[in-house]
């Protein structure tokens, strides 16, 4: 089981890094923020799997904190930092 856990954690990390492209590419600010949300969910999954693989239940608390605070960042973006977008180049 151990090898399967680590293989999946590695696979999910690759997923996360692939998602980085969307942060760099945009095109809108919301796209970048959305990608950060994906990172949050993926990191939760990685942490839960690593918690099981290493037998360290404290890592589930880290995942719990991630799940809660990702929402706070996203709300800060929506309420404060979202600029008026330029609708000319909003699709790929």
């Amino acid at each position: 089981m151990q090898a399967i856990y680590f293989l999946l954690a590695l696979f999910l990390l690759l997923n996360l890094i692939a998602g980085m492209w969307r942060v760099l590419r945009g095109p809108t600010a919301a796209d970048r923020m959305l990608a950060a949300q994906l990172f949050g969910t993926t990191a939760v999954a990685i942490l839960l799997i690593v918690a099981q693989a290493t037998g360290d239940p404290a890592l589930r608390d880290v995942a719990l904190v991630f799940a809660l605070l990702a929402a706070v960042t996203a709300v800060a973006f929506v309420r404060r930092a979202w600029p008026d977008e330029d609708p000319r180049h909003d699709t790929d």
Partner: peptide, 22 residues
């Protein structure tokens, strides 16, 4: 170092993001 990971999750990935966006 799960203690540091917890602090980083709460401050680095959470609060600092909101602070910088503001």
């Amino acid at each position: 170092a799960p203690d540091v990971a917890l602090a980083e999750a709460a401050i680095g990935a959470g609060l600092t993001g909101a602070l910088l966006l503001t």
